[in-house]
């Protein structure tokens, strides 16, 4: 079983991290979208934000592992048929996705800790505030969270469409090599 990346293929660790994080990002977006419109008397009024915060902070840790894994592993080379534009556009999009995920996580964390309180991750551990109480911080980072998460799922959608284009139109291995190692 190929765990690490090679010059021509992604390993299982990178593949699993990719899909796990994709699931978390879209799951968190959907949950966030749903929970902000919940009424005071809905059963999920408190549970949904608890899950959202907890998963978001666990995602932060997983993202750190993913970035470290990317840095200390060979990066599979672009496929031979890809144009210079495709290669740079893909690289730029991937980098932006990483940045947006971190911006989304940090801004979300700051909303919950802007009053100096800590975030409880499931009933497991809690992450303290680094800002302490900062008046009206939650509004500023709230806007950042809203727009960065929209940008994130938007760009992730473009990223998915691009993979479809490679799979169905170009008929190359771009998508397949993110499904299993060669």
């Amino acid at each position: 079983m190929q765990l690490s990346n090679s010059r021509k293929s992604y390993g299982w660790v990178a593949i699993l991290l990719h899909w796990l994080i994709a699931l978390a990002v879209f799951g968190l977006f959907g949950l966030g979208w749903y929970m902000v419109d919940l009424g005071y008397y809905d059963d999920w009024y408190r549970t949904a934000p608890d899950i959202h915060r907890s998963v978001g902070l666990i995602l932060a840790a997983v993202m750190v592992v993913r970035v470290a894994w990317r840095l200390f592993n060979p990066r599979p080379e672009p496929l031979a048929g890809h144009s210079r534009f495709e290669i740079w556009a893909a690289y730029g999009a991937h980098l932006t996705l990483y940045v947006l995920i971190f911006v989304a996580i940090v801004s979300g964390y700051l909303i919950s800790t802007a009053d100096g309180s800590s975030v409880q991750v499931f009933n497991w551990f809690s992450v303290p505030s680094v800002t302490g109480r900062m008046r009206e911080l939650e509004t500023i980072v709230g806007d950042v969270h809203y727009w960065s998460t929209w940008a994130l799922v938007g760009l992730a959608g473009v990223h998915a469409l691009a993979s479809m284009k490679h799979h169905f139109i170009d008929r190359d291995r771009t998508l397949r090599r993110m499904l299993k190692p060669d």
């Binding site: 934000p49 802007a114 009053d115 309180s117 939650e138």
Partner: peptide, 15 residues
Amino acid sequence: ESVDSNHGERDKHLR
């Protein structure tokens, strides 16, 4: 905007 109930998430919601 200066509403303050000593709870950031609630204040954001109140705004």
